[in-house]
């Protein structure tokens, strides 16, 4: 071609040849080669355009304009082709990169809280929202705090309700309930009003079975003030049950007996499994026993330093593991201290 005389026709022939070649290109490497061959610094088209000087002077402007159009046309075709090839190559590479999405993910070694703590946190959170803050007291207690100040005189039959672990130290025992914390809190805060929750481990002398354990968590609550009423007790505990067990869940209050409250009650909630129809979980009563409660007994108020003719209060107590068992369908209380990771990792 360098030998053929320069003309618009030869340029057009060259361009046509280039375009024809371009349509056959399907990979970016060949495409770059094509670009160098025709449009590079020493490319055929570039050189052909440079040979404008060989033309007679009057033909040069027309040729120049034409040559620019041809170049632009080829560049545009090149860009178009490049986009197409890039898209195709991307598609090929994506197709090759497909994975079996059903293979298992890489396991994350996540830690978890013990279910008792999870349940306890939930309970404490609800009470915190109602203005009850946490007060904790000791596990190893005196008979005085665990029983006497709570209106259980020595040898009183009410002591039969709580089988107790005694220690070699006279009058020192493992607390059977979190209620000694009521006295500790009252003595710490008297004469201020009180709203506290008292979580903690309690101990009972029991055979370890699917239903009973020697240690378990309780959460006790105590409100003392100038104007705390039985209807407040019902109201706050009903609100608690609605949050803990679900909105609309029915509750009922039964008369009961605890030496440190009067009137005393037990709160049942509608069975969470059968919704009150009766099933194995609720022993066909439709109700689940959730907590004991009552108005603080005047003797206990007195022992805490509060004048029962001026102050009044209410108290309640619930078993954390029992609530967890109901919520998660756990049938054996021994799971809690068994610490089998196959159980704990389900939470």
């Amino acid at each position: 071609m360098p030998d053929s005389p320069q003309s618009i026709e030869t340029l057009d022939q060259l361009a046509a040849q280039a375009l024809a070649e371009l349509t056959g290109i399907s990979d970016s490497q060949t495409l770059e080669h094509w670009h160098t061959t025709y449009l590079g610094r020493k490319g055929k088209v570039t050189l052909a355009v440079r040979r404008v000087g060989e033309l007679p002077k009057e033909e040069r402007p027309a040729f120049g304009q034409h040559a620019n159009r041809v170049k632009q046309q080829l560049e545009a075709a090149y860009e178009e082709r490049a986009r197409l090839i890039k898209a195709q190559e991307m598609e090929r590479s994506l197709a090759e990169g497909a994975v079996d999405v059903t293979l298992p993910g890489h396991p994350v070694l996540r830690g978890r809280l013990h279910p008792s703590i999870q349940t306890l946190r939930r309970i404490l959170q609800i009470w915190a929202d109602m203005g009850f803050q946490v007060y904790r007291s000791r596990d190893v207690e005196t008979d005085e705090y665990n029983f006497q100040l709570l209106n259980f005189p020595p040898h009183h039959p009410a002591r039969d309700m709580q089988d107790t672990f005694y220690t070699t130290q006279p009058d020192v025992l493992l607390r059977t309930h979190t209620s000694p914390g009521q006295i500790h809190a009252m003595r710490a805060y008297c004469p201020q009003p009180i709203r506290v929750v008292l979580p903690g481990m309690c101990y009972r002398y029991e055979q370890i079975t699917a239903r009973s354990e020697i240690q378990f968590h309780q959460v006790e609550g105590l409100a003392v003030g100038y104007h705390i009423r039985f209807t407040d007790l019902k109201g706050t505990l009903t609100d608690f049950a609605q949050r803990m067990f679900g909105a609309g869940r029915k509750t009922r209050f039964r008369a009961s007996y605890f030496p440190f409250t009067e009137p005393s009650a037990e709160m049942d909630v509608e069975c969470i499994l059968c919704h009150g129809k009766g099933c194995r979980l609720c022993k066909y009563t439709g109700w689940l026993e959730i907590l004991g409660c009552g108005m603080v007994h005047p003797v206990v108020l007195q022992n805490g330093g509060y004048d029962p003719t001026i102050y009044s209060g209410y108290a309640f107590g619930m078993g954390v593991e029992r609530i967890a068992m109901l919520c998660y369908g756990i049938e054996d209380i021994r799971y809690f201290w068994g610490n089998d990771l196959r159980f704990l990792e389900q939470f």
């Binding site: 409100a223 100038y226 407040d232 109201g235 039964r254």
Partner: peptide
């Protein structure tokens, strides 16, 4: 017991800790 209404505590809020 079930014939008593449910109410909210109207007493003063104790110091928060």
């Amino acid at each position: 017991y079930d014939r008593f209404p449910n109410t909210q505590i109207e007493d003063v809020m104790p110091p928060q800790r």
